[in-house]
Write a protein that binds this DNA or RNA. Sequence first.
DNA 1: TTATTAGTATGTACTCATTACAATAATATA
DNA 2: TATATTATTGTAATGAGTACATACTAATAA
Lengths: 137, 137
Amino acid sequence: MNKVESAISLLRSKSIRPSIARIKILEYLSHTTEHPTVEMIHTSLLPAIPTLSKATVYKTVGLLVEAGLARLLYGEDCEAHYDADISDHGHFQCTRCGKIYDFAVNLALLETEGLERFAVTERNVFFRGACPRCLSE
Amino acid sequence: MNKVESAISLLRSKSIRPSIARIKILEYLSHTTEHPTVEMIHTSLLPAIPTLSKATVYKTVGLLVEAGLARLLYGEDCEAHYDADISDHGHFQCTRCGKIYDFAVNLALLETEGLERFAVTERNVFFRGACPRCLSE
DNA sequence: TTATTAGTATGTACTCATTACAATAATATA
DNA sequence: TATATTATTGTAATGAGTACATACTAATAA
Ligand SMILES: [Mn+2]
Ligand SMILES: [Mn+2]
Ligand SMILES: [Zn+2]
Ligand SMILES: [Zn+2]
């Protein structure tokens, strides 16, 4: 199964009609580690889909998050970043360059207390600091 | 040492001149579990300080965060929430009512991989889901 | 005390991400 | 085909946050 088919079947599995915009946006999210913003997604796809509007990007990423095909992160700048990697992993944002990095984290080992009567649907681990690249400058 | 003295000495310890606005804002943050936004802080303190402007609240909470006297959380709505409890603890935001709750978490047990060359200065654990109150409706 | 200065607070205008909405285009169904 | 439904677009509005110039306050010096 190639990239496009994979995106299409993912969308179909969530009963989302696989339009060009949706396929391309999901594909783009699936093949980047950048955790892009709406602005970045729009800019990146505009050459391929010249008619793509930001409104569509906003709507589509909202749809993907709601369907569980992507996750939403808020960075330092209070801008929404999107990530098609929905597996358990932590995020590190560099306070100097703003880049968001993935890291492995064992959430199963995390002991919490006080959430007995809560229905937890989403677990985020978000670290901040300086990345190696910025540290070496 | 009473509330006011405590806020004053906290500010002094960070070389921040304890003006009325700063004392009241820090005090308010220290005695609420609400994780208020700038809007909420401003509304709550306006009766006591009728001349308090939002610009001052923005500036002051920024100052407090920079000094390490408060922490900044981004909720679902991409609005900044402030918390004077700077001890290690996790946050849970209810996706229905928007309320942010504290919970105990043992961050020391959290195993991470891939951050060896990063300088981590801030660790956040952020969960989402439904709170007991919303679940019982 | 008054004058000078630095630090603090205020109001306003602005930026910009996000949302709302109505109009248009595309797609599915009959 | 015609008709209904869904998707996309452009634009206007919203609202959090920032920038900045002005006004105010408090500390220090003369
Ligand atoms: Mn990620
Ligand atoms: Mn808290
Ligand atoms: Zn960096
Ligand atoms: Zn709730």
